[in-house]
Amino acid sequence: MRTVLFQLLVGRLAIGLATLFIVAIVVFSATMLLPGDVVEVLLGQAATPEAIAGLRTAMHLDDPAPVRFVHWLMGLLQGDLGQSYVNNLPVADLIASRLPNTLRLAGVTAAIAIPLSLFLGITAAVMRGTPYDRTVSILTVAVISVPEFMTATLAVLFFSVWLGWLPALSHLNHVDSIGDMMRVYAMPVISLTFVVSAQMIRMTRAGVIETLDSPYAEMARLKGASPARVVLRHALPNALGPIVNAMALSLSYLLGGVIIVETIFNYPGIARLMVDAVATRDLPLIQSCAMIFCVGYLILVMLADIVALMANPKLRG
C-alpha cells in the first residue's frame, strides 16, 4: 500500500513540474508580446545602429524565441535572474532585498488566520443554522464578494481613521521595539487576514458539515455520544484531510491579497516590486517575480494535494 501512496505522490510532483514548465512558457511568451525594441529603449534615441546591433547580440536578442527561452530557463535554474532594465541592478539582489518582507507578512498572517478560521469554521459548522452561524456565513460571503482593496480600505477606515488605534501606512525604517513592529504589521496583517480567512472559514465549515452529515456521525449521535465527542472524536479526524487541504488552497489566496495589500500600505515586499515592474515594463524583473509567485503557489497547491492523499486512510500503509 505504501507504494501506491508513493506512486501517487511522485505523480503529483511530476504534474507540478510539468505545470511549472507550461507556466514558464506562458510567462516568457507573454513578455514577448511587448511592442517596441528593448535595446532601443535601453540605449535611448541617440544610439548608433552599431551600438544597437552590438547590444542585441550581447543580449542574444537575435536568436530565435525557443533558443532564448531555453537560455532564460537555464539561467533561472542556475540562479541567474538577469539584470533589471530600469536600474541595471541584478534582479536577484532586488528580489533578495524584498522577498523576506513578503514572507514575513505571509507568515504572520498565516499564523493568525489559520487558528482563527479553524475556530470560526468548526464552531459555525457545529452550530449550523443558529444566528451565530448565519452571521459568520454572511460576513464571509460579503468579504469574498468584494474586491480585496475594499476590505483593506475599510479596515484602514475602521481601525486607523475612526478608532485611531493604528497608523494607516507601513514604514519599515523606524522599527525599534516590538510595539513598533506590531504597529507596522498590524494594518497589512489585519487586511490580509480578513481576505484569507473568509475562504478558509467557508471551506472548513463545508468540510466539517459534510462529515457531520455522514452515517457514522449519525450513528455516534444515536448511540448517545455527547455532541463534543461526536465532533472531536468522530467528525474532526475525518474532516482533517479536507480541512488541511482547504487551508493550503486558501493560503494561495494570500497571493492575490498580498499584491493589493502591499500596494495599499506601501509595504516594501516582492508583490509591490512586481507591480512597479509592470508599470515600468521591466521584463526580467517581471519574469522572475512571476516565476517566484507561481512556484510558491504551486507548492501550496501540491501540498494541499499531498495532504489530501495522506489523509485518505485507504492509501495509508
Binding site: 510567462v27 507573454a30 503557489y297
Partner: peptide, 23 residues
C-alpha cells in the same frame, strides 16, 4: 490539460504578466 495548466496560474499574476506584455 492545456486549460488545466493555464488555470493553475493565479489570476492576478496572469493579469499582471499579460498587461506587462500587451498593455
Amino acid at each position: 490539460r492545456f486549460f488545466d495548466a493555464l488555470s493553475s496560474i493565479p489570476n492576478k499574476l496572469f493579469a499582471l504578466v499579460a498587461v506587462a506584455g500587451g498593455g
